[in-house]
Amino acid sequence: MKRIFRYNITEKDVGKTIETFLLEHEYTPTCIKSLKKAESLITVNGVWEFVNKKLKENDILETVFVDEESSENVPSVEMSLDIVYEDEDILVLNKPANLPIHPTKGYEYTNLANGVVDYYEKQGIPFVFRSVNRIDKNTTGLVIIAKNMLSGSILGESMRNREIHRTYLAVTEGELPEKGTVDLPIGRREGSAVERCIDENGAKAVTHFERLYYANGYSLAQIRLETGRTHQIRLHMRAIGHPLPADELYNPKFDVIERHALHSWKLEFPHPITKKILRFEQEMPEDMKNIFKK
Rank of each mutant, 00 (worst) to 15 (best):
F65C: 01
G106C: 10
T30C: 02
C31M: 06
V77I: 12
K56D: 15
H102G: 07
L41I: 02
E49N: 11
L81V: 00
S40T: 11
K33G: 11
I83H: 12
K54E: 15
N98Y: 06
E88K: 14
G106K: 04
I83Y: 13
I60V: 15
K53C: 04
E24Y: 03
L23Q: 12
K53Q: 15
E39C: 07
I90N: 10
I42R: 01
V92A: 02
E26Y: 11
L91Y: 05
S40L: 10
K54Q: 15
L91I: 05
D89I: 03
N58W: 08
S76K: 09
G115F: 01
L112S: 04
K53N: 12
N52F: 09
I60M: 14
T63G: 03
S70A: 11
E78T: 03
Y27C: 05
N111F: 05
T110Y: 11
S40Y: 09
P96I: 08
N58G: 05
E88C: 10
I90K: 03
E86R: 11
A97I: 03
N94A: 06
D89M: 06
V51K: 12
G115V: 00
L22H: 07
Y107F: 15
F65V: 00
L99I: 02
E68H: 11
E57R: 14
S71T: 01
E86D: 12
K54I: 06
N98E: 09
I101Y: 06
K54D: 12
A38P: 00
A97E: 13
L112K: 03
T110W: 11
E78Y: 07
N114E: 03
K95E: 09
T20G: 04
G115K: 01
A97Q: 12
G115M: 01
E69A: 12
L35R: 07
K37F: 10
L35Q: 07
E86T: 07
T104D: 09
D87H: 09
M79T: 02
A97C: 03
A113S: 13
S76C: 09
K37D: 14
D59P: 08
E78V: 02
T20N: 10
E86G: 07
E108W: 09
N73Q: 11
K95G: 08
I90P: 04
T110L: 13
G106D: 04
K56V: 06
I90G: 08
A113C: 06
T63Y: 07
L112Y: 10
E57M: 13
K36C: 13
P75I: 06
L23P: 02
L35M: 13
E72L: 13
V74F: 04
L22V: 06
V66Y: 07
D82Y: 03
T30E: 13
N58L: 10
S76G: 08
S71V: 01
W48P: 07
E26D: 15
